[in-house]
Design a protein around this nucleic acid. Structure first.
Length: 717
DNA sequence: GCTTCTGTTCTTTTT
DNA sequence: GAACAGAAGC
């Protein structure tokens, strides 16, 4: 049945925000107050009641998932070509703009988007080739530095050399920039920076988009970073209106450069902006809301807001004290089983955790009980090595300058081209100033550069890429991919090895073909082919929604990816110090963002919230005793029901008795201790302070272990 | 040049 | 525990 557009089911505050003619609006909306709904209704109101063209509206979301959701909901009401609407992430929108303006943006027509893994690979190679090998400089950190610079619109020629490290960073940045330019590659940060520069340098282009976009709507505004803000700024003319929706309490991407201050900046830069507040929550029970409110109250830097509900207080929040991570998973999965028996659907239940690595235990338990589940994020489909190999073949065939793809596949599957041959080829391409791929035929003309065997292999490879180029001009995408997998011998190589791993890789390759199948009826922009669109899709989208389309799955994801979603039942797991809040954030004193993440987690729940923590957790191969997260203590005791075999009673804790005396001005390192289970040993290091103190003990019989002093109950000898 | 073994290091979140 | 790098042996 087709839904009709109506404003009737909005409350007054929501309706005020949706229907107003002020040029610029800022909606500060708490969790569950109908934020997305307001955004969608606003778009509909502009189109249906104010004669806006659907294509004159730019709506920016934070994730692809959110963009898809908005598009789906709009298409239920509007009878138009939704895909052509400007709804997407900053990256998606900017990419689309770059495609149509590639010449002005100084990009080749077939430029390709690379993901963070590619970026790190390139940096690694650059460091090796330029002999910048120093234990203090890690590729990951260099990538982080470059991305940060790009987020501040700082090009490599504008960086400042502060110390030895930054000198090296800047040197790599410069080479990396040249490398990407020569290879026609664009990373995530570059997509945004290029677009901003395009508008800065080309007044005509800027004017074109000023005329195109009458209004700009931005979801999750608290998560915009500096360059994204600048981009919004440059896209607004005197006639453009802004509609920003955000919640400072849900700002959880500071580590990626997000600036909550942008909310205040917006109020300064857009004079007379009208502010609306949505504080009535329609999602959660009173108890869940109380928990969320009391946790977030511990943060100092807040704009201030208190969510309320007309609903009932509901069930108590259940907090389970697990023996270890396996016991925790048992608890969660057993409860899921009984919930499903009580007529809850599996997709109404979610398990939320702080780090991706935590998902494994839950997966194993769910599999053993035969409960379907779906994991969001984590290992992304398109990031799997076998998938990236196939994509690299396609990319190299499309763009011969793509040295990164070349390096990836030149010897995958193995064809006898080793380090020596590669090095010779690299030298040659550098000397001739041509790409690695184009260097092959030229180099082969010179006798005796390579061994006879290497020459043959290179020649074979050259022919193979040309064959793929030919394949890509025939039939459709699924056929092409299937053919590539065969011709490159990727398929036969995996088929030969009979391991479980190879079998799953083959399955993934099949999934890639079905992903291509779904791509056949995609809407294309100007200047774009199906192949272009597909290759972009593989780096800009994670590959969610692929494969298992059975909708009734238990939902597993990190707290970060849960933002914007809601579930009747939420299991919030791993509430332990050093895990959540994470060790990094404790060390860097970044607890407020971590607390906001907790707030996000709690407010995902509509009806029932289960929280759990383990007293012992195996991590990175060792056993660690853990302390309950400080966030647990911030939830009012009256709305909590503590369950579990051996409740830790974290509310009463905090008294360290005799241990305090031992610490008074004296180091524990070197002291001999006795543990009930592990026996005797020597303390070899310690970190943290007060109730957070952890010590590393080298036990005589069981080796080294990290223990939490407050819990381990060590006897000092 | 390829494969296998061993030792080392790094462990947060994502477009 | 996994991913990676380097060495040894084929």
């Amino acid at each position: 049945m087709e839904l009709r557009y109506t404003l009737n089911d909005l409350n007054e505050a929501q309706r005020n925000a949706v229907c107003n003619l002020s040029q610029n609006c800022l909606v500060i909306a708490g969790a569950g107050s109908g934020k997305t709904r307001v955004l969608i209704q606003r778009i509909l109101w502009l189109i249906e009641d104010n004669d806006y063209s659907p294509y004159s509206i730019l709506a920016v979301t934070f994730t692809n998932k959110a963009a898809r959701e908005i598009k789906t909901r709009l298409s239920n009401t509007l009878n138009i070509k939704i895909e052509s609407m400007w709804v997407g992430t900053f990256h998606g929108i900017c990419h689309r703009i770059l495609r149509s303006n590639y010449q002005k943006a100084l990009l080749p027509k077939n430029f390709q988007v690379i993901d963070s893994e590619d970026q790190i690979r390139i940096i690694k190679r650059i460091m090796k080739e330029n002999e910048i090998e120093n234990s203090q400089i890690q590729p990951k950190q260099v990538a982080w530095y470059i991305n940060k610079k790009k987020d501040q619109s700082v090009r490599s020629n504008k960086t400042k050399d502060d110390d030895f490290i930054t000198i090296q960073y800047n040197k790599i940045y410069k080479i990396y920039e040249d490398y990407c330019n020569n290879s026609g590659l664009v990373d995530f940060g570059e997509i945004i920076l290029r677009t901003l520069e395009l508008f800065q340098k080309n007044i005509e282009t800027r004017k074109y988009y000023h005329n195109l976009f009458k209004t700009i709507l931005i979801d999750e505004f608290q998560d915009t970073n500096t360059i994204q803000y600048d981009l919004v700024r440059i896209l607004t003319s005197n006639d453009t209106s802004i509609f920003a929706v955000g919640d400072d309490d849900q700002s959880i991407y500071g580590w990626r450069g997000a600036k909550v201050e942008n909310i205040e900046k917006l109020q300064k830069d857009y004079n007379g902006i009208k502010i609306f507040r949505l504080e009535q929550n329609y999602r959660s029970t009173g108890n869940i809301l109380d928990a969320a409110n009391s946790v977030i109250l511990n943060n100092n830097s807040r704009m201030g807001k208190n969510l309320w509900t007309e609903g009932k207080s509901g069930d108590l929040i259940k907090i389970y004290s697990a023996n270890d991570e396996i016991d925790e998973a048992n608890f969660v999965v057993e409860n899921i089983e009984s919930l499903v028996q009580n007529n809850f659907k599996r997709d109404e239940i979610s398990i939320l955790y702080r780090s991706n690595a935590q998902s494994r235990v839950f997966e194993e338990k769910l599999i053993s009980k035969g409960i379907p589940y779906k994991i969001y994020g984590g290992f992304r489909f398109f990031e799997r090595s076998e998938i990236k190999d196939v994509i690299a073949y396609m990319r190299l065939a499309v763009n011969h300058n793509d040295d990164n793809s070349f390096e990836r596949i030149i010897n995958t599957p193995v064809r006898g081209i080793g380090e020596k041959t590669k090095a010779t080829l690299r030298d040659f391409s550098k000397k001739e100033k041509i790409s690695l791929f184009e260097a092959i035929p030229v180099a082969l003309k010179n006798e005796n550069i390579f061994t006879k065997k290497a020459s043959e292999s290179l020649n074979e490879f050259f022919k193979l890429i040309n064959l793929i180029k030919d394949i890509l001009s025939k039939e459709d995408l699924p056929f092409q991919i299937n053919e590539i997998i065969k011709q490159t011998k990727i398929k036969s190589t995996y088929e030969k090895s009979k391991t479980e791993q190879s079998r799953s890789k083959l399955e993934n390759l099949d999934e890639l073909i079905s992903a291509a199948q779904e791509f056949l009826n995609v809407d294309l922009d100007d200047n774009e082919t199906v192949l272009d669109a597909f290759l972009t899709h593989t780096s800009l989208e994670s590959g969610e929604g692929q494969g298992d389309e059975w909708d009734e799955c238990v939902q597993l994801m990190t707290l970060h990816s849960s933002k914007g979603l809601e579930f009747p039942i939420v299991f919030l797991v791993g509430l332990e110090e050093n895990l959540f809040p994470s060790r990094m954030s404790i060390e860097e004193d970044n607890l407020e963002e971590e607390r906001r993440l907790c707030y996000v987690g709690i407010t995902r729940a509509r009806k029932n919230l289960y929280i759990s923590y383990a007293q012992l957790r195996r991590q990175y191969g060792t056993e660690n005793f853990c302390m309950p997260s400080r966030f647990l203590k911030e939830i009012p005791q009256e709305i909590v029901e503590e369950i579990g075999f051996n409740p830790r009673k974290f509310f009463d804790r905090g008294n360290l008795s005799n241990l305090d005396n031992i610490f008074e001005g004296e180091s524990v390192i070197g002291k001999r201790v006795k543990h009930k289970k592990f026996g005797e040993g020597v303390v070899i290091s310690s970190e943290g302070f007060e109730s957070n103190t952890r010590v590393e003990v080298s036990f005589d019989n069981v080796g080294k272990k990290w223990l939490i002093l407050a819990i381990a109950n060590l006897e000092f000898m």
